[in-house]
Amino acid sequence: MSNESVIINPEIIEKKISSLNSFQKGLTDFFEEVSALTHFTIHFFKEVFLPPYEWKEFLKQSFLIGYKSMPLVGITGFIMGLVLTIQARPTMSTFGAESWIPAMVAVSIVREIGPVITALIFAGKVGSGIGAELASMKVTEQIDAMEVSGTNPFNYIVVTRIAAATIMLPLLVIIGDAIGLCGSYLGVNIQGDVSFHLFFLQVFGKLDFSDVMPAVIKTFFFGFAVGLIGCYKGYNANKGTEGVGKAANAAVVFASLLVFIIDMIAVQLTSLFN
């Protein structure tokens, strides 16, 4: 056996310990965040069914979240339908399947692209808005002011916004899909001549109940996720103006990520039931 001694560089050991510590901290932070979010969600479900019901604030938020997002969702939906149709044409022409374009675009939009794209836009506009608004309310002590005036701020601010986001997103997706199909109709007619009646006959001829329902159901979860993350990030923002920016940014990032995760689960479940 050799008597060679192993030389251990203390710097390397220090670096390894340091990276191990930061990994451990990251893991702890992650589980703390998950735990806090779970508590926040449970708090929401406890409050949502208990009176007093803040109907006026809920309607106001539905207007701000839903109605005010319609132009953006509409324009995006229209462009989405138009571009998808134009991009699909060359490939479909190769197979001589141009007549299938309306049906293919409709299934794509209704089942997947419409809900996901609209939810991502919704996360960008509404999620960040809610995150920034609530964080700003926290920084300027407006949430505390509400509490000392004898109002439950969670019920008034959080429950109404999450409920409005949950209900408004499916409506926006339906509107976005409809406008997207109109965009597709225009796309088809740029290089062809298909009547409005024939186009929508082909669209609805290929759309099943099993295409529409799972897509609509998952949008409720998308809306809930966007509202929940926006409220959670804003309501728990750190004090200071920096906290407002961070809350808005984190709301968009986490809500978008959650939209994809929910979509993945929804697709798996839909395939399972189909």
Binding site: T140, Q142, G150, T151
Partner: peptide, 19 residues
Amino acid sequence: NELRKKIGFLFQSAALYDS
């Protein structure tokens, strides 16, 4: 909450609801 209605609180920033 009932007790809070008998107590007024003026915050440093006034904490008016911006919206």
